[in-house]
């Protein structure tokens, strides 16, 4: 039982940590992607394409077993948190970009016509409108990220799924144990969904 709680706490920590850092990094990436400087735009696009087009499990294996070969070694939990953050940041950036794209062109043109700088038009015109559009997609990414943390179990992090596996090894009751683990994920996802719902009603 304590193993299950420990696994659940690890899943929570991994989810929370990765989502916050994915959001921060995602903002940086989206600013690069919509900037007016072609080189920066290229960097932003390359980032998104690189991380979105390779499966998360492959990234995890590459970071966990590949980096030590060139002398870089972190504890497994932190390696997993970094990989999940980098990966999900690409999705966050795309969700944010869709929010920006949803703001009518005329808005940006009007802001420029009024003499606002790029930063000012982002801050006062584009971001407040875009933010409302991205609450729902970000919520979806948060839930997907929660499920994705179970892949960390494949590289040795004892999170909820790996903990369930270990308990099953002794108890031999897979249906019961994995239904239990599934319910834990369900509660997590439902909680996130409820928060997103309230935020949406407030802002959107």
């Amino acid at each position: 039982m304590s193993l299950l709680v420990e696994g659940l706490l690890t899943t929570l920590a991994l989810t929370g940590l990765s989502f916050v850092s994915a959001c921060l990094l995602g903002i940086v990436v989206v600013v690069l992607r919509i900037s007016t400087v072609p080189v920066l735009r290229g960097i932003g696009t390359a980032y998104v394409e690189t991380f979105q087009n390779v499966p998360l499990l492959v990234w995890l294996v590459l970071f966990v077993f590949g980096l030590p070969e060139i002398g870089i070694s972190f504890p497994l939990f932190w390696t997993a948190a970094v990989v999940i953050s980098l990966y999900e940041a690409a999705y966050v950036a795309e969700a944010l970009r869709s929010g920006v794209n949803a703001v009518a062109h005329g808005q940006g043109e009007a802001a420029r016509a009024l003499g606002l700088t790029f930063a000012q038009s982002l801050r006062h015109v584009v971001v407040p409108q875009a933010a409302r559009k991205v609450v729902q997609p970000l919520g979806n990414i948060f839930i997907a990220l929660t499920m994705a943390t179970s892949l960390a179990g494949a590289v040795g992090v004892v999170e909820l799924t790996r903990a369930a596996n270990r308990i099953n090894l002794a108890e031999a009751q897979p249906l019961l144990i994995f239904t239990g683990a599934g319910l834990c994920y369900l509660v997590l996802a439902a909680g996130i969904g409820a928060v997103v719902f309230r935020l949406e009603r407030r802002f959107a």
Binding site: F65, P68, E69, L76, G156, V158, R162, N165
Partner: peptide
């Protein structure tokens, strides 16, 4: 206990000092 999926992964992790 550090659990890894396959024997080669376990060996690599041992050699990498995990």
């Amino acid at each position: 206990i550090l659990e890894l999926g396959s024997d080669p992964e376990c060996l690599t992790a041992l050699k990498q000092g995990r």
